[in-house]
Write a protein that binds this DNA or RNA. Sequence first.
DNA 1: CTGAAAGCGCTAACAC
DNA 2: GTGTTAGCGCTTTCAG
Lengths: 322, 322
Amino acid sequence: MVTIKDVAKLAGVSTATASYGLKNDSRVREGTKIKVVEAAKVLNYIPNGAARYLKTQKSNIVGVFLDGFSRPTYHKLLDGINYELDKHGYNIIVSSGKSAEQLMFNRQIDAAVIHDKNVKNETIKRVASDSFPILLLDRELKQKFVHEFTIENTNITYQLAKHLLEQGYRNIHFISGVTSYDNTHRYNGFVQAMEEFGVYNPENYYQGDFSIRSGYNIANNIIKNKKPMPEVFFCANDEMAVGAMDAIKENDLKIPKDIAVVGFDNVELAKYYSPSLTTIHVDRFMWGNDVANLIIALINKETDLSRFSKPSGRIIYRESCK
Amino acid sequence: MVTIKDVAKLAGVSTATASYGLKNDSRVREGTKIKVVEAAKVLNYIPNGAARYLKTQKSNIVGVFLDGFSRPTYHKLLDGINYELDKHGYNIIVSSGKSAEQLMFNRQIDAAVIHDKNVKNETIKRVASDSFPILLLDRELKQKFVHEFTIENTNITYQLAKHLLEQGYRNIHFISGVTSYDNTHRYNGFVQAMEEFGVYNPENYYQGDFSIRSGYNIANNIIKNKKPMPEVFFCANDEMAVGAMDAIKENDLKIPKDIAVVGFDNVELAKYYSPSLTTIHVDRFMWGNDVANLIIALINKETDLSRFSKPSGRIIYRESCK
DNA sequence: CTGAAAGCGCTAACAC
DNA sequence: GTGTTAGCGCTTTCAG
């Protein structure tokens, strides 16, 4: 491995001068600088990040930790985070599973953004510190050096449920995802509207896991066994809504005539599915931009974070409901 | 920051003993071990990965570098890589853009997997070394310490084109993605079949960029201006195929009666689009598994890599063509 | 303007 | 079994 020593030797200077020269420090004379840069080039010198980090305690890397790589809502978010981090000279690494825990412990990153229910609160409390802020996108946790930046779910699902109720729907069943901040708050908004109209029934709550398959199974089961049939499946995300619509069509029922369906997320499929799905859009690229700026602010120990506000969604009306 | 020195001091042992104790080395007595582990716990000691890496020159991290985070074909691939790396005690980090280059240079990872046309061959040649193998998924490059593991595109597009020709289609237009290994080889297979049937026309090649929008624009343009109209749009990926189908429907034409469409990748949308899309499926989770095992083999400097073979696709026949 | 040298936190000879 | 210590590659203080 080529080290700065080799560069220094070839350039005929000390390692200190080589180090300064490579950073274009004003102290070194122009001629020396050129010699150093030249030597580095000849030797194909690549600085060792670990060594640098060990010394400076700063890696300029932000870690983003997710629950797998397949959830369609992650992609825009990641692009948004990456775009903005890049603009500010930060690098991004994304990870999942055991790797994520390892990396948080390893201290090779300056901060962490977490959207992964598998990361335990305990772990977060353990690693968060003055020099390692953590931003949570998937839960709330009051703790020093830990911040939250979740979506505003409740109000928007309240609005959507209210809209359905105003259209005359009454027998609305909620298909839930895995227990999580987002899921709970989406349900809360739904419940609020249902209660307002006096038609809330806690039994009409079904536990899924955010997957197409779970939406399909739950809906299929309800359709086959439940009398009277629900008028609407209110799904905690689009994928389950797609599964539910698959089940409805398979049972030779019509959407929205026999059963209406709404989702949450506005994934690509929502637009292309036939019928197209009424759902809630959240601008995740923008959210990602804000996430990046917020984590940078935290790294810089800024205290006025009032300029950051929870992203809210908007309803996209399509064919799957009145 | 709590270091191993602090742990050693609290446990009343040397740093060496502390280090060994934490690794459960057989040399240290059980009682000492317990004292050390206890001290580490009390102090909330977290080992510093940078320091360890600097010493051992091994991070157990594999970097995967992609062209953005949004391409739908990446997700299963990543899950596949992650799953298998995890089984073997390796961690994964995923990155894109400038971050990716930085990380490759930083040497905080043991190996790199690249599927990003923006990473230049020159960069790859520069950083690949005996102790830093690189695996390319998006191109071929003959170079020491650099290996390739691309999809077998040509034969399967040849098969699909042949199928279309056997169904009687003749006027088939190719909608291409950005210039890339995959794109070129998909086109090659297409050309081969067309030539076999004596109907190859190099003019019927349109340059897109793999996006829905580009597929839409190209198809719309052809439909509006080209006489006679093509019988088939042969698209280099599913997203462009979706765009093309959008355009066909918008022009009040029927798929496949007026114009047939085929794609490549078998993304989720292909199944759900109406009409569903005939395309080529590649098992990317499996590919990811193989990628992980191959990169591990490379890290371990194995020489017999014959057990790894390029993944090939299979045609999924659906409604968008005869 | 340049060089010598300390030291970031950890591991692994080596000595006892 | 346990401790001492050199040193991974880099940055940066302090001298000169």
